[in-house]
Design a protein around this nucleic acid. Sequence first.
DNA 1: ATGTTCAGTATACAAAAGTATACTGATATT
DNA 2: AATATCAGTATACTTTTGTATACTGAACAT
Lengths: 129, 129
Amino acid sequence: MSDFKDFIGSEKGPQCPRVYILALTDTLNVISGKWKLPIIAALLRGVNRFKDLLDSTEKITPRMLSKELKELEINSIVERKVYNQTPVLIEYRLTNSGKDIANVIDSMIDWGMIHRTQVITKTDAGEGS
Amino acid sequence: MSDFKDFIGSEKGPQCPRVYILALTDTLNVISGKWKLPIIAALLRGVNRFKDLLDSTEKITPRMLSKELKELEINSIVERKVYNQTPVLIEYRLTNSGKDIANVIDSMIDWGMIHRTQVITKTDAGEGS
DNA sequence: ATGTTCAGTATACAAAAGTATACTGATATT
DNA sequence: AATATCAGTATACTTTTGTATACTGAACAT
Protein backbone atom coordinates (compact mmCIF):
# COMPACT_ATOMS: atom_id res chain seq x y z
CA MET A 1 0.00 0.00 0.00
CA SER A 2 1.26 3.45 -0.91
CA ASP A 3 1.84 5.76 1.98
CA PHE A 4 1.56 9.42 1.22
CA LYS A 5 2.34 10.25 4.86
CA ASP A 6 5.79 8.68 4.60
CA PHE A 7 6.72 11.09 1.88
CA ILE A 8 4.91 14.20 2.73
CA GLY A 9 4.22 14.01 6.44
CA SER A 10 7.75 14.25 7.73
CA GLU A 11 9.47 17.56 8.33
CA LYS A 12 12.33 16.91 5.94
CA GLY A 13 11.28 13.65 4.31
CA PRO A 14 11.89 12.57 0.74
CA GLN A 15 10.00 14.30 -2.04
CA CYS A 16 6.72 12.76 -3.10
CA PRO A 17 7.39 10.60 -6.19
CA ARG A 18 5.90 11.93 -9.41
CA VAL A 19 4.02 8.69 -10.11
CA TYR A 20 2.08 9.27 -6.89
CA ILE A 21 1.14 12.76 -8.00
CA LEU A 22 0.03 11.47 -11.39
CA ALA A 23 -2.02 8.67 -9.85
CA LEU A 24 -3.59 11.11 -7.43
CA THR A 25 -4.59 13.65 -10.06
CA ASP A 26 -5.96 10.84 -12.25
CA THR A 27 -8.19 9.76 -9.42
CA LEU A 28 -9.26 13.29 -8.64
CA ASN A 29 -10.22 13.84 -12.28
CA VAL A 30 -12.32 10.70 -12.30
CA ILE A 31 -14.38 11.65 -9.26
CA SER A 32 -14.47 15.44 -9.45
CA GLY A 33 -17.42 17.43 -10.61
CA LYS A 34 -21.10 17.43 -9.94
CA TRP A 35 -22.11 14.28 -11.82
CA LYS A 36 -19.25 11.74 -11.87
CA LEU A 37 -20.07 9.99 -8.59
CA PRO A 38 -23.84 9.92 -9.13
CA ILE A 39 -23.25 8.36 -12.55
CA ILE A 40 -20.75 5.83 -11.23
CA ALA A 41 -23.16 4.99 -8.43
CA ALA A 42 -25.96 4.36 -10.92
CA LEU A 43 -23.67 2.16 -13.02
CA LEU A 44 -22.71 0.22 -9.89
CA ARG A 45 -26.43 -0.28 -9.25
CA GLY A 46 -26.75 -1.84 -12.69
CA VAL A 47 -28.28 1.06 -14.56
CA ASN A 48 -26.68 0.83 -17.99
CA ARG A 49 -28.66 2.66 -20.64
CA PHE A 50 -28.58 6.32 -21.51
CA LYS A 51 -32.27 6.84 -20.92
CA ASP A 52 -32.21 4.98 -17.62
CA LEU A 53 -29.17 6.93 -16.45
CA LEU A 54 -30.97 10.14 -17.40
CA ASP A 55 -34.01 9.12 -15.39
CA SER A 56 -32.15 7.76 -12.37
CA THR A 57 -29.66 10.62 -12.09
CA GLU A 58 -31.73 13.44 -10.73
CA LYS A 59 -31.92 16.54 -12.91
CA ILE A 60 -28.97 15.80 -15.16
CA THR A 61 -29.39 17.00 -18.74
CA PRO A 62 -28.61 14.77 -21.73
CA ARG A 63 -25.80 17.13 -22.66
CA MET A 64 -24.04 16.63 -19.34
CA LEU A 65 -24.68 12.91 -19.23
CA SER A 66 -23.27 12.52 -22.72
CA LYS A 67 -20.24 14.62 -21.87
CA GLU A 68 -19.52 12.79 -18.63
CA LEU A 69 -19.94 9.33 -20.16
CA LYS A 70 -17.50 10.29 -22.91
CA GLU A 71 -14.94 11.41 -20.37
CA LEU A 72 -15.40 8.26 -18.33
CA GLU A 73 -15.01 6.18 -21.47
CA ILE A 74 -11.84 8.00 -22.51
CA ASN A 75 -10.43 7.35 -19.06
CA SER A 76 -11.31 3.64 -19.23
CA ILE A 77 -13.82 3.83 -16.41
CA VAL A 78 -16.75 2.76 -18.54
CA GLU A 79 -17.15 0.76 -21.73
CA ARG A 80 -19.76 1.59 -24.32
CA LYS A 81 -21.27 -1.35 -26.13
CA VAL A 82 -23.53 -1.04 -29.14
CA TYR A 83 -26.01 -3.85 -29.85
CA ASN A 84 -27.28 -3.56 -33.36
CA GLN A 85 -30.84 -4.51 -32.67
CA THR A 86 -33.79 -2.32 -33.38
CA PRO A 87 -34.32 -0.15 -31.57
CA VAL A 88 -30.58 0.22 -31.12
CA LEU A 89 -29.38 -0.78 -27.68
CA ILE A 90 -26.40 0.93 -26.14
CA GLU A 91 -25.03 -0.15 -22.81
CA TYR A 92 -22.56 1.57 -20.56
CA ARG A 93 -20.72 -0.69 -18.16
CA LEU A 94 -18.03 -0.07 -15.59
CA THR A 95 -14.64 -1.54 -16.36
CA ASN A 96 -12.81 -3.40 -13.61
CA SER A 97 -11.03 -0.17 -12.69
CA GLY A 98 -14.39 1.52 -12.66
CA LYS A 99 -15.73 -1.00 -10.19
CA ASP A 100 -12.61 -0.78 -8.04
CA ILE A 101 -13.16 2.89 -7.48
CA ALA A 102 -15.74 1.84 -4.91
CA ASN A 103 -12.76 1.32 -2.60
CA VAL A 104 -11.83 4.98 -2.91
CA ILE A 105 -15.44 5.94 -2.30
CA ASP A 106 -15.46 3.78 0.83
CA SER A 107 -12.43 5.52 2.25
CA MET A 108 -13.99 8.87 1.46
CA ILE A 109 -17.16 7.89 3.29
CA ASP A 110 -15.13 6.64 6.25
CA TRP A 111 -13.21 9.87 6.53
CA GLY A 112 -16.33 11.96 6.08
CA MET A 113 -18.24 10.13 8.81
CA ILE A 114 -15.41 10.28 11.33
CA HIS A 115 -14.82 13.93 10.47
CA ARG A 116 -18.46 14.74 11.12
CA THR A 117 -18.47 13.11 14.55
CA GLN A 118 -15.26 14.93 15.46
CA VAL A 119 -16.60 18.29 14.37
CA ILE A 120 -19.87 17.77 16.23
CA THR A 121 -18.05 16.71 19.40
CA LYS A 122 -15.85 19.81 19.26
CA THR A 123 -18.86 22.07 18.64
CA ASP A 124 -20.81 20.58 21.58
CA ALA A 125 -18.08 20.50 24.18
CA GLY A 126 -15.19 22.58 22.91
CA GLU A 127 -14.04 26.17 23.35
CA GLY A 128 -16.29 27.21 20.42
CA SER A 129 -15.23 30.23 18.35
CA MET B 1 -15.57 -0.01 7.60
CA SER B 2 -18.35 1.37 5.44
CA ASP B 3 -19.04 -0.55 2.28
CA PHE B 4 -20.52 1.44 -0.52
CA LYS B 5 -20.57 -1.68 -2.70
CA ASP B 6 -23.00 -3.41 -0.36
CA PHE B 7 -25.53 -0.69 -0.86
CA ILE B 8 -25.00 0.38 -4.37
CA GLY B 9 -23.29 -2.50 -6.08
CA SER B 10 -26.12 -5.02 -6.01
CA GLU B 11 -28.80 -5.08 -8.65
CA LYS B 12 -31.69 -4.49 -6.26
CA GLY B 13 -29.89 -3.75 -3.01
CA PRO B 14 -30.94 -1.32 -0.31
CA GLN B 15 -30.72 2.38 -0.97
CA CYS B 16 -27.50 4.13 -0.03
CA PRO B 17 -28.03 5.75 3.41
CA ARG B 18 -28.10 9.52 3.37
CA VAL B 19 -25.32 9.80 5.96
CA TYR B 20 -23.02 8.09 3.47
CA ILE B 21 -23.94 10.59 0.78
CA LEU B 22 -23.32 13.48 3.15
CA ALA B 23 -19.97 12.09 4.27
CA LEU B 24 -18.97 11.50 0.67
CA THR B 25 -19.82 15.00 -0.52
CA ASP B 26 -18.06 16.47 2.51
CA THR B 27 -14.91 14.63 1.52
CA LEU B 28 -15.24 15.61 -2.10
CA ASN B 29 -15.58 19.26 -1.12
CA VAL B 30 -12.45 19.09 0.99
CA ILE B 31 -10.25 17.70 -1.77
CA SER B 32 -11.79 19.21 -4.91
CA GLY B 33 -10.32 22.11 -6.80
CA LYS B 34 -6.92 23.08 -8.04
CA TRP B 35 -5.27 24.01 -4.75
CA LYS B 36 -6.75 21.99 -1.87
CA LEU B 37 -4.45 18.98 -2.13
CA PRO B 38 -1.27 20.98 -2.77
CA ILE B 39 -2.03 23.08 0.30
CA ILE B 40 -2.84 20.07 2.46
CA ALA B 41 0.35 18.43 1.24
CA ALA B 42 2.38 21.48 2.23
CA LEU B 43 0.73 21.54 5.66
CA LEU B 44 1.50 17.84 6.08
CA ARG B 45 5.11 18.67 5.26
CA GLY B 46 5.12 21.16 8.11
CA VAL B 47 4.77 24.39 6.16
CA ASN B 48 2.59 26.52 8.37
CA ARG B 49 2.83 30.22 7.56
CA PHE B 50 1.03 32.19 4.90
CA LYS B 51 4.20 33.40 3.27
CA ASP B 52 5.80 29.96 3.30
CA LEU B 53 2.67 28.36 1.86
CA LEU B 54 2.69 31.01 -0.86
CA ASP B 55 6.29 30.23 -1.69
CA SER B 56 6.05 26.45 -1.51
CA THR B 57 2.79 26.15 -3.43
CA GLU B 58 3.82 26.82 -6.96
CA LYS B 59 2.13 29.81 -8.62
CA ILE B 60 -0.74 30.23 -6.19
CA THR B 61 -1.82 33.81 -5.64
CA PRO B 62 -2.40 35.26 -2.16
CA ARG B 63 -6.05 35.68 -3.02
CA MET B 64 -6.52 31.98 -3.70
CA LEU B 65 -4.42 30.88 -0.76
CA SER B 66 -6.41 33.10 1.56
CA LYS B 67 -9.70 31.83 0.14
CA GLU B 68 -8.72 28.18 0.35
CA LEU B 69 -7.36 28.45 3.87
CA LYS B 70 -10.61 30.08 4.97
CA GLU B 71 -12.63 27.26 3.47
CA LEU B 72 -10.40 24.65 5.07
CA GLU B 73 -10.73 26.43 8.39
CA ILE B 74 -14.53 26.61 8.14
CA ASN B 75 -14.57 22.87 7.46
CA SER B 76 -12.32 22.14 10.45
CA ILE B 77 -9.48 20.85 8.32
CA VAL B 78 -7.02 23.52 9.48
CA GLU B 79 -6.73 25.67 12.57
CA ARG B 80 -5.51 29.23 12.42
CA LYS B 81 -3.46 30.37 15.38
CA VAL B 82 -2.44 33.97 15.98
CA TYR B 83 0.69 34.62 18.07
CA ASN B 84 0.74 38.20 19.20
CA GLN B 85 4.41 38.77 18.78
CA THR B 86 5.91 41.35 16.53
CA PRO B 87 5.98 40.85 13.71
CA VAL B 88 2.69 39.03 14.09
CA LEU B 89 2.97 35.28 13.61
CA ILE B 90 0.09 33.32 12.18
CA GLU B 91 0.24 29.57 11.87
CA TYR B 92 -2.02 27.24 9.97
CA ARG B 93 -2.07 23.66 11.22
CA LEU B 94 -3.98 20.60 10.16
CA THR B 95 -6.54 19.34 12.66
CA ASN B 96 -6.61 15.62 13.42
CA SER B 97 -9.24 15.19 10.71
CA GLY B 98 -7.01 17.13 8.40
CA LYS B 99 -4.14 14.77 9.04
CA ASP B 100 -6.38 11.72 8.65
CA ILE B 101 -7.25 12.73 5.14
CA ALA B 102 -3.90 11.27 4.18
CA ASN B 103 -5.67 7.90 4.30
CA VAL B 104 -8.07 9.00 1.61
CA ILE B 105 -5.16 10.30 -0.43
CA ASP B 106 -3.42 6.94 -0.07
CA SER B 107 -6.43 5.07 -1.39
CA MET B 108 -6.66 7.51 -4.28
CA ILE B 109 -3.00 6.93 -5.12
CA ASP B 110 -3.49 3.17 -4.90
CA TRP B 111 -6.43 3.21 -7.28
CA GLY B 112 -4.69 5.59 -9.65
CA MET B 113 -1.56 3.46 -9.87
CA ILE B 114 -3.44 0.19 -10.42
CA HIS B 115 -5.68 1.89 -12.94
CA ARG B 116 -2.66 3.12 -14.89
CA THR B 117 -1.11 -0.33 -15.12
CA GLN B 118 -4.44 -1.82 -16.23
CA VAL B 119 -4.95 0.79 -18.93
CA ILE B 120 -1.40 0.38 -20.20
CA THR B 121 -1.75 -3.42 -20.29
CA LYS B 122 -4.97 -3.16 -22.27
CA THR B 123 -3.45 -0.67 -24.70
CA ASP B 124 -0.39 -2.86 -25.30
CA ALA B 125 -2.05 -6.24 -25.67
CA GLY B 126 -5.78 -5.67 -26.02
CA GLU B 127 -8.18 -5.24 -28.94
CA GLY B 128 -7.39 -1.50 -28.88
CA SER B 129 -10.03 0.81 -30.39
C1' DA C 1 10.61 59.80 6.74
C1' DT C 2 11.35 55.82 3.98
C1' DG C 3 11.61 51.21 3.33
C1' DT C 4 10.76 46.30 4.65
C1' DT C 5 8.21 42.22 6.18
C1' DC C 6 3.99 39.79 7.32
C1' DA C 7 -0.56 38.76 6.32
C1' DG C 8 -3.51 39.47 3.85
C1' DT C 9 -7.74 42.53 0.76
C1' DA C 10 -9.76 44.84 -3.59
C1' DT C 11 -10.98 45.06 -8.24
C1' DA C 12 -11.30 43.41 -12.62
C1' DC C 13 -10.99 39.87 -15.71
C1' DA C 14 -10.65 35.01 -18.06
C1' DA C 15 -11.66 30.27 -18.25
C1' DA C 16 -14.03 26.20 -16.89
C1' DA C 17 -18.10 23.92 -15.48
C1' DG C 18 -22.86 23.49 -15.60
C1' DT C 19 -27.90 24.70 -17.27
C1' DA C 20 -31.91 25.48 -20.38
C1' DT C 21 -34.20 24.52 -24.29
C1' DA C 22 -34.75 22.92 -28.58
C1' DC C 23 -33.59 19.90 -32.12
C1' DT C 24 -31.85 15.49 -35.08
C1' DG C 25 -32.12 10.91 -37.26
C1' DA C 26 -33.03 6.20 -37.29
C1' DT C 27 -36.55 2.86 -36.61
C1' DA C 28 -40.98 1.29 -35.28
C1' DT C 29 -46.08 1.73 -33.95
C1' DT C 30 -50.87 3.30 -34.84
C1' DA D 1 -49.05 10.32 -42.50
C1' DA D 2 -48.50 11.36 -37.62
C1' DT D 3 -46.50 9.93 -33.27
C1' DA D 4 -43.24 7.73 -30.19
C1' DT D 5 -38.75 5.94 -28.49
C1' DC D 6 -33.77 5.76 -28.15
C1' DA D 7 -29.60 8.00 -28.11
C1' DG D 8 -27.94 11.57 -28.36
C1' DT D 9 -26.31 16.92 -30.61
C1' DA D 10 -26.61 22.21 -31.05
C1' DT D 11 -26.78 26.77 -29.42
C1' DA D 12 -26.89 30.02 -26.13
C1' DC D 13 -26.59 31.15 -22.03
C1' DT D 14 -25.33 31.51 -16.31
C1' DT D 15 -22.52 30.26 -12.50
C1' DT D 16 -18.43 28.88 -10.42
C1' DT D 17 -13.70 28.71 -10.24
C1' DG D 18 -9.36 30.58 -10.91
C1' DT D 19 -5.93 34.55 -12.51
C1' DA D 20 -3.61 39.14 -12.70
C1' DT D 21 -2.26 43.09 -10.61
C1' DA D 22 -2.28 46.38 -7.38
C1' DC D 23 -3.03 47.85 -2.88
C1' DT D 24 -3.63 48.08 2.66
C1' DG D 25 -2.14 48.47 7.49
C1' DA D 26 0.50 47.32 11.48
C1' DA D 27 5.03 47.05 13.41
C1' DC D 28 9.59 47.56 13.26
C1' DA D 29 14.61 48.87 11.06
C1' DT D 30 17.60 52.43 8.92
